[in-house]
């Protein structure tokens, strides 16, 4: 048991959560189940993508991972700490840092540096160490040059990298990103994803990326697909995207390469496997073509 807790950095056990709306007299007007019987185990250093369309419960799930919401039923454990434990809540939020969708609505400081300092300031870190942490965090996302800028003068991708730095300055072990690229242009999207992947690869920070963009999920170690508050599919990207029909049934598409391979198969070209990227697709097509020319010979 002990060993398991140490290996698993985040766990959910049969989590259920309802959004309940009441009228003035406290009667329940509407009861929407946002999550029902969600369970998972996330290992240290993994890159997890949580996929789902709007209203699938993926953002609600994200908010459970750092105690912004606590489960109605079941439990969420971060490094073995229960998110319902009021004593541990600030520890949990320090360990599981969260980046939100809208960069403007999560930057508090009027200067980049000041904003990155906000987290450590709240933790009561001594001034000298805050300055060191801020410097280090900005360097890790490549924003050192802009440290004296007003956030209003940065591009969307840069603002989102500042937000990530703000979380990194708290020295988290898990980075939860709730649709961090949804409001960015392609350039900003690339910047942010590159920063996140490098943090995961080089520093083994556990990443939980919530997204509705299939292409972003391709590089993950594992994917959870959410639908109607439940985990509908789970597995490696290759396993998940191989199930194109199931994905289509819950209103999700597959990455471009997977889709093209599927269409080619329909047309009779025997493209094997589930190519996830353009390169893999090219290879698979070449192999299929070689086979045909080989057969003819």
């Amino acid at each position: 048991m002990e060993g398991k807790i140490h290996r698993m950095i985040a766990q959910a056990r049969d989590v259920a959560y309802h959004y309940i709306r009441r009228d003035e007299e406290g009667r329940v007007v509407r009861d929407t189940a946002a999550l029902s019987s969600v369970s998972f185990d996330i290992e240290r250093g993994e890159f997890i993508a949580i996929l789902g369309h709007n209203g699938s419960g993926k953002s609600t799930l994200a908010k459970h991972l750092n105690g912004l919401l606590t489960p109605g039923e079941g439990a969420v454990l971060i490094e073995g700490m229960d998110t319902r434990d009021g004593e541990q809540i600030w520890n949990i939020r320090r360990i599981a840092g969260m980046v939100f969708q809208n960069p403007d609505n999560q930057i508090i400081g009027q200067i980049v540096e000041e904003d990155v300092a906000f987290g450590p300031e709240n933790l009561g870190v001594p001034p000298q160490e805050i300055a060191e942490r801020v410097q280090e965090a900005l360097a890790r996302v490549g924003m050192t040059e802009k440290r004296r800028f007003s956030p209003n003068k940065l591009s969307g991708g840069q603002k989102q990298r500042v937000s990530i730095a703000g979380v990194l300055a708290m020295r988290p072990k898990i980075l939860i990103l709730d649709e961090p690229t949804a409001m960015l242009d392609p350039e900003g999207r690339r910047e942010v994803l590159e920063a996140v992947h490098s943090l995961n690869r080089r520093e083994r920070i556990t990443v939980i990326l919530i997204t509705h963009d299939m292409e972003e999920a391709v590089d993950a170690d594992r994917i959870y697909v959410m639908d109607g508050g439940r985990i509908a599919l789970t597995g490696t990207p290759r396993e998940v995207f191989a199930q194109a029909e199931q994905l289509a049934a819950i209103g999700l598409t597959v990455p471009m390469a997977v889709a093209v391979a599927g269409l080619l198969r329909q047309e009779g070209l025997a493209v094997e496997g589930t190519p996830l990227t353009q390169e893999e697709l090219v290879e698979a097509i070449c192999r299929a073509a070689d086979k045909i020319t080989g057969d003819i010979k």
């Binding site: 750092n66 912004l68 600030w90 939020r93 320090r94 840092g97 969260m98 939100f100 508090i108 540096e113 000041e114 300092a117 906000f118 987290g119 450590p120 300031e121 709240n122 933790l123 009561g124 870190v125 001594p126 001034p127 805050i130 300055a131 801020v134 703000g166 979380v167 708290m170």
Partner: peptide, 13 residues
């Protein structure tokens, strides 16, 4: 989410 809980125990850079 960034551990803000009022002025208690807060330090400044």
């Amino acid at each position: 989410a960034r551990c803000y809980h009022g002025g208690e125990g807060r330090t400044r850079m």
